[in-house]
Simulated assay, not measured.
Amino acid sequence: MSRALQFGCVAIGGRGVLIEGPPGSGKSSLALALIDRGAVLVGDDGVLLEVQEGSLIAAPHPQTSGKLEVRNLGLIDFAVSLPVPVALVLRLDGDAPRYVETAECSVVMGVDVPLVRLWPDSPVLALRAELALKTYGLAVA
């Protein structure tokens, strides 16, 4: 059974990165910056999540598939990813710690997924997101 949840999500190298944060925190802007760096859109502000064999799988929501809200421009069409295993949750957080030694854990639909909090106003936020995935993200089988 799948559920639609309010996350943004992109696929990077076959691994899903869920992006969460309060409204206006820059979730869609981070997704756009990651897409510019080679990521593929899974969903903006709503993805279908399903547990398969103990892994969390993210898929585009049929009502918004391929649409990304680009501030000041509206809904823009993008290529959309096939379903991907979720490897990391990024939480945009103005109080994110300056330094971490390990990722936190986010439990999404009963599945433990590494979570990294990122300060949303960084001029290199997309690069930090990619490094977080490389450093703390789950491997894909």
Rank of each mutant, 00 (worst) to 15 (best):
P120H: 05
L115W: 07
S65A: 15
G26V: 03
I57C: 06
D77F: 10
H61I: 00
C9N: 04
A96Q: 05
R71T: 04
V17E: 04
C105P: 04
G66M: 10
G13T: 07
G46Q: 15
D112G: 13
P85M: 07
E101Q: 11
G13H: 08
S25M: 12
V17M: 07
V113G: 05
R98Y: 09
L18S: 10
V116R: 01
S2M: 02
L131H: 12
A39I: 01
D44W: 05
E50S: 09
K67C: 02
T102K: 15
A87G: 15
G94W: 15
V113P: 02
P114V: 10
D95C: 06
V111H: 06
G26N: 02
H61P: 12
V111C: 07
V80G: 01
Q6M: 07
E130T: 15
T64R: 11
V107M: 11
L118A: 04
L92W: 12
A59E: 07
R15I: 00
P97E: 02
G16P: 04
E20A: 15
G74P: 08
Q6C: 02
I76K: 10
M109F: 15
A59W: 14
G110Y: 11
V111A: 06
V40E: 10
G137R: 05
F78Y: 13
Q52G: 00
W119I: 10
Y99I: 08
Q52P: 09
G66T: 06
